[in-house]
Design a protein around this nucleic acid. Structure first.
Lengths: 159, 159
DNA sequence: CTACCCCCTGACACCGGCGTCAAGGTCAAG
DNA sequence: CTTGACCTTGACGCCGGTGTCAGGGGGTAG
């Protein structure tokens, strides 16, 4: 198939596909007229790239996953290089979450003085009604909301 | 004082100060030779900007805070525009945290298959020993780590 | 032959907060 | 007078993943 079809089937732009090729993530044989020609397996490769980008990986991070798939493995994440990248990304994500939690704490602390009663539960009362069907969770007493295995706060931001 | 001194006292570069001025956040009167001249209050303004940048605000976000200070208020966050921005940023931070938690969940789910036993507790075993004095929290059974008023997961990321 | 759709390469634009270099003026100390 | 630290404006670079435009070729349907 040509680039337009692959783009449509993978849900990306042709521009993105050319960029991935330029970055060495995918490759294409060329027809006599210079057009790129792809096969079914490329759909899978692009899907892998997109799903990784969706969770915050860069194209560079995605490289070992793609290589893994091209090496014949059924899952891009099954190679040791992929695992190493995943672990690194996990640490990065955790660090980011911790930083954001610190930021949040600083903002809420500020708001405690300037707008008492504003930050009882997250994101509310400042931009109209909820989008749609957001059931407004319990919020309980306003503290200790358990998460789905979130990283530990470990906050130490002294201001 | 001139730009070099303000830069040193505020802990920023002269380039940054010129940029803030270009963005209309701070202003300086000019000496006869064209040099920028600042006074003590500017140290405070720049400090406010820096502390806001440090929690993820953009310069645009910082504008009402600076205006508030320049209007004579003792705290940059005490004006209604500042409060509005803080609430918006809080919502943005919450959204980012939720997104990151979803990303984290996807990565750990992946690792569950490709590296069983790797993600029992966050950020460990992939880059040497802990930095220093990080006591490695309990981790308990591996779930439900309470946070310091973190936003609700509300995750709905179906893959 | 003309339309028209698809493809090609190359390259600038974007976003934010600066770093950094260029080319030159100012002023006090030696 | 010279040196050298400090200042000025202007402008490009960076990072990542594209969007988009420019300018031109390929192939098929009418």
């Amino acid at each position: 198939m040509r680039i337009g079809e692959l783009a449509e089937r993978a849900g990306v732009s042709a521009r993105a596909l050319r960029y991935y090729e330029q970055q060495g993530l995918i490759s294409a044989r060329r027809a006599a007229n210079g057009y790129r020609e792809y096969d079914e397996s490329d759909v899978r490769l692009v899907a892998e790239i997109r799903s990784l980008l969706a969770v915050g990986f860069t194209l560079e991070d995605a490289r070992p996953f793609v290589d893994c798939l091209r090496a014949g493995h059924e899952a891009g994440a099954s190679c040791p290089e992929s695992v190493a990248v995943s672990l690194r990304k996990l640490a990065e994500i955790d660090a980011e979450i911790r930083a954001l939690i610190r930021h949040r704490a600083e903002v809420t602390a500020q708001l405690t003085y300037t707008c008492p009663g504003c930050d009882l539960f997250p994101a509310e009362g400042n931009d109209g009604p909820r989008p749609a069907g957001t059931p407004r969770r319990q919020a309980a007493t306003g503290r200790l909301a358990g998460g789905v295995t979130p990283p530990p706060p470990d906050d130490q931001a002294g201001s």
